[in-house]
């Protein structure tokens, strides 16, 4: 299933593929013999913020990992900025301008805060400078010499997000960024997402906290058993909230 393609080209063919930043067609993913995703269809336009909603085990996090080629094997079609990535090696995918923030945050214990920030290689120009990042997250500046894993949960989450902003990534895949965090931190994260969206970034947000995600997103994709079963536009949200709640089991 996974064949190796040549390195990605530096600039995507924007004109040829319209304004689609991400498109998944009939995507299947497997961990060993376990079939996790069953024909996922997903399209995200440039500059959009979309959410993947669903119950635990619905396949939301696996969808992000499948885009990053972090699963055992995958099939179908996954295009990033119009470029097919199915046969690409995992380390070539971020170079198309994709930043991934994992559910467990992935802060490196052996590195201090600033080393964690500087770790991901720059994938394209236009990323935020260290000064911009410290202005956005002042806590990180104050604790820049602390060991990464000694930060509070909220600070670790900010660090996990901040380090992909520095790389110049313009498509952000964010997995459960509010999990286990205090409301005041969630408020800060929401402000950051609004700022990033206003800068034209494309964001795919896997979220359990629907109240956090609802006011931010342009569209919501609801997943169940490894499939997208419903797409709800932000403008239809109020009318369909009851239906959505029943899907999510809220």
């Amino acid at each position: 299933m996974n064949q190796t393609l040549d390195r990605p080209t530096a600039s995507p063919a924007v004109g040829a593929h319209g304004d689609e930043a991400l498109s998944l067609a009939d995507v299947n993913a497997f961990y060993g013999e376990s079939h996790i995703l069953h024909g996922v269809e997903l399209r995200v336009k440039r500059g959009e913020l979309v959410t993947l909603l669903g119950r635990n085990g619905a396949g939301r996090s696996t969808t992000l990992k499948t885009i990053m080629n972090m699963v055992g094997s995958r099939s179908g079609s996954i295009k990033i900025n119009g470029q097919e990535t199915l046969g690409m090696k995992p380390h070539h995918i971020p170079r198309l301008g994709v930043g991934y923030c994992p559910e467990e945050r992935g802060i490196f214990a052996s590195l201090d805060v600033e080393e964690n920030l500087l770790l991901p290689p720059t994938v394209r120009s236009g990323g935020m400078s260290l000064d911009d990042i410290y202005a956005m997250f002042p806590n990180l500046y104050e604790r820049r010499r602390s060991q990464g894993t000694r930060l509070s949960g909220g600070e670790q989450q900010m660090l996990a997000m901040a380090r992909i902003l520095r790389t110049g990534a313009e498509i952000l895949l964010l997995d459960e960024i509010t999990e286990g965090l205090a409301p005041v931190i969630n408020q800060k994260l929401a402000e950051v997402l609004i700022t990033l969206k206003s800068r034209g970034m494309t964001i795919v947000l896997v979220e359990q906290n629907f109240r956090f995600a609802a006011p931010l997103a342009d569209r919501h994709f609801v997943m169940e058993h490894g499939r997208i079963i419903e797409t709800i536009e932000a403008r239809d949200l109020d009318a369909r909230r009851e239906h959505l709640n029943s899907l999510l089991g809220v």
Partner: peptide, 13 residues
């Protein structure tokens, strides 16, 4: 050493 999969997801070979 800590998390090779995430390093690949950052673009490190």
């Amino acid at each position: 050493t800590e998390n090779p999969a995430l390093m690949q997801a950052f673009g490190v070979n």
